[in-house]
Write a protein that binds this DNA or RNA. Structure first.
Lengths: 204, 204
DNA sequence: TTTTTTTAATAAACACGTTTACTCAGAAAA
DNA sequence: TTTTCTGAGTAAACGTGTTTATTAAAAAAA
């Protein structure tokens, strides 16, 4: 590692630290690249050299903590209590995590989620990874016999994710909605999804 | 109606027509308010006077057609074929509609969906309306006896919507994904949701 | 009719993300 | 060591959404 590379990494870290604290305190929309540049002691253009655009900087600022929160939730999964309990636990944990700064995570998702072909890949990459994990869990439930064998597990994982992101959206948009209420909402929705809402024998 | 009000409406219409054709042809991101202003023969500031911001203009440009597409789909619902067929029909119709300009509708959703407290209300208002409709349909299925009475229908409607918007997101983000494939994906997901993915007796 | 008030429309300016053209210190080559 | 090359960092400029201050014409009041 040359001296030049060292200082490059250092600069990147300087920017990242400044961005993290400023995004967190003022909100992503209310804090400009110029603000962060001043705080980090670099020029605005330098930030773009290191992070391509503001959204990429936001992703870089937040994704590590999200990853950690997920791992922590995963480590405390009530594996004995069945699929429903496990999934509600994961969702509830993440809801609590995002609740610490709803506004900020709302903007992260807004600026990340509907980009095409994953132009800002960090966040979407992470999601796909997690999705894979869920699919594996469902596959394991199949071998336990609790999930029907004909249920395609990657689609079931997608469904789970769509329901999760849906309720999460409600949570991030609506300041009136408590984490508890959102978790309850998700719990019911998941239950409907697992057991079906049709009367027996009415399946399509 | 005074002469001033008349000309105001006329100006608004001028802007709307220009916006519709330019958004459609160049895409929302690649066409500026200044472009539209020139096309409409007004100043950029006038557009903001009439529409508050670019997103509001985009909403106003598109919402009527979306409404029409939905009504058309609703009018051709295969009501005899059961809930699954009806819902897949609605979703399939809307997918085909959005397929005419995926890029444009992707941006509409991106700029609309994660706004807080419904700052740009047009699109979200519409969604809530449609959600209400779905909830009523599910309620009717209950009285027919095809849906379980203990399934909360507003949450069931939300679920449906989350699954729909999830697959729609896939469609709008991924140019490789065909309408047929997306519809198929949704059909399976909906089936899972209606009948449940758990083995019988394994319900929570 | 004359005066006052309202407001649709606008030009100019502003804010902010991003691009461009350039510099100069450090690495590589001679 | 001297020269050449590379690329991290930047100042200045640009593009574009939005705000501000102003105007003038229509409506209301006198």
């Amino acid at each position: 590692m040359s001296r030049r590379d060292d200082s490059k990494i250092e600069t990147r870290e300087l920017i990242l630290v400044a961005a993290q604290s400023m995004f967190w305190e003022k909100g992503a929309d209310r804090c400009t690249i110029r603000d962060i540049a001043v705080e980090a002691g670099v020029s605005p253009a330098t930030i773009i050299v290191h992070f391509k655009n503001k959204t990429a900087l936001l992703e870089a600022s937040l994704h590590e903590d999200i990853e950690k929160a997920f791992s922590k939730a995963q480590a405390t999964m009530p594996v004995e209590d069945g699929l429903h309990a496990v999934l509600v636990h994961m969702v509830s944990s993440m809801f609590s995590f995002y609740d610490r700064n709803r506004e900020l995570y709302r903007i992260l998702i807004r600026d990340t989620f509907y980009e095409p072909d994953h132009e800002n890949p960090t966040m979407m990459k992470m999601l796909e990874e997690k999705l894979q994990l869920i699919a594996i869990m469902i596959e394991q439930e199949k071998s336990k016999g609790t999930v029907r064998n004909d249920a395609e597990s990657s689609l079931a994982a997608s469904s789970f994710f769509f329901l999760y992101i849906g309720v999460l959206g409600d949570l991030l948009r609506d300041p009136e909605l408590s984490v508890t209420a959102a978790t309850g909402r998700f719990s019911v929705i998941l239950d409907q999804h697992l057991t079906g809402i049709l009367t027996l024998g009415a399946g399509s």
